[in-house]
Design a protein around this nucleic acid. Structure first.
Lengths: 146, 146
DNA sequence: TATAATTAAATTGCGTTCAACTTAATTTAT
DNA sequence: ATAAATTAAGTTGAACGCAATTTAATTATA
């Protein structure tokens, strides 16, 4: 490998991840638009459909997002009537979030989204394979060292 | 698999991609801060170090970013003295970008970043393996269908 | 050849994403 | 018990990322 090959876009692990991640989020968009949800709002709802009730902090830990991102998005979901916020009585610093009835109801419809998405995804199979190749390369390097 | 399992965060292909992509970009940050580059600025520079001279449109095609994202970032790189913009004489709609001397010079130093990054990355090996597992699962499903 | 359609960049506006800071509540350590 | 430190949310500001629009240049067409 030449000295500067390591700087080539396709040889980096990060770029394929970054590009594919954005592309998949774009695939979600038309499916989520029907429910007036952004991708970030969607993954917050995913957590709530698993947990029923959770603090902002735990939500952030699950999604690897900090309160600066989550607080305003949750605020919008509350405004849309999908979530409710209340303070945890035993520790008033903690803000809890839970589903409203409306929030519970749309789960039924949203469950179809991942299936539809996988069908839409066929066209990006190549990007997936490219990513897998890079991943395998990186992981192989780690194995060599250890 | 239960009906709603498909809605679980870890069973989705998108979420691990999305979370890991952000995490890797965060790993780049301290390394890029020294050169006053953001990740987006960095990948634009990566293209220029491969191409020497390229139009905004082609740059966007390589990075899967549109002019709405690229134009303002290129403007900043020009202000920082790393790039130069000029119009393509044969078609004045096209704006070309090329490296300045300063832009060429920092390539020498930046070439060390990917190596450093891989070392920092050891800690996130697990996230990589998790992603690889999900990828393999998805790709296996595609194989079944075809 | 005028006019319409297309194309490349740039701009605008909205929604994140993240670092840094603020505020309020709770713990810890005098 | 009270001051200091810590913690959880929220706010602010900078930088994307993208859809939609605008502007200018070029190409196609009536």
């Amino acid at each position: 490998m030449e000295k500067y090959d390591i700087l080539k876009l396709d040889n980096q692990i990060c770029f394929p991840l970054y590009a594919l991640s954005r592309k998949v989020i774009q695939l979600y968009k038309p499916l989520l638009d029907k429910y007036n949800l952004t991708y970030t709002q969607y993954i917050i709802m995913l957590v709530l459909w698993e947990e029923e009730k959770i603090s902002i902090k735990e939500l952030g830990e699950k999604l690897f997002l900090d309160s600066g991102t989550i607080s305003p998005v949750v605020k919008k979901l509350v405004k849309q009537g999908l979530l409710e916020k209340f303070r945890f009585k035993e520790d008033e610093r903690i803000v809890m979030v839970k589903l409203t009835e409306k929030g519970k109801e749309i789960k039924e419809e949203i469950v179809e989204i991942p299936e539809k998405l996988y069908r839409n995804f066929e066209g990006d199979k190549e990007a997936l394979f490219q990513l897998k190749e890079n991943l395998d390369k990186i992981l192989a390097e780690f194995d060599e060292k250890s």
